[in-house]
């Protein structure tokens, strides 16, 4: 059981991500023929909520730089995730090899 724990946990993660994708269906096109959108960012929804609670509020600052398109934006997010995942993978790889070498040299049979 312990051996497969990580695999089971990762399966649970995949299931939790897939479940909403399967559960939530895109509503049919409205009368005003505006395309319905689902799975937008919660941050944007909060922004809209600010607009409805305080209609007079004007954002007083603008981002210095905005990704010129959604594609460029997702590239930067992917880059951020790749850098992080790459480093974690590297560290676990180094640790695995080190643990193996310690075992083989027999200096750490018990700990």
């Amino acid at each position: 059981m312990k051996r497969y724990q990580n695999m089971l946990l990762l399966l649970a993660v995949v299931a939790l991500i897939a479940l909403p994708l399967w559960m939530i269906r895109k509503p049919a096109r409205g009368v005003n023929s505006k395309q319905a959108v689902i799975f937008t960012g919660a941050d944007d929804k909060a922004k809209d909520l600010v607009g409805s609670i305080a209609p007079g509020y004007k954002a007083w600052a603008r981002p210095l730089m905005e990704p010129p398109s959604g594609e460029v934006g997702s590239m930067l997010f992917a880059l951020q995730a790749a850098l992080g995942a790459g480093f974690i993978g590297y560290y676990i790889g180094v640790s695995t090899t080190r643990a193996k070498m310690r075992r083989e040299s027999g200096t750490e049979t018990r700990c």
Binding site: P20, G41, F77
Partner: peptide
């Protein structure tokens, strides 16, 4: 870095 870059879908229909 990794986790804050992952925008995941949720049961409320937003990410």
């Amino acid at each position: 870095f990794v986790l804050s870059a992952l925008k995941l879908p949720s049961v409320t229909g937003s990410c």
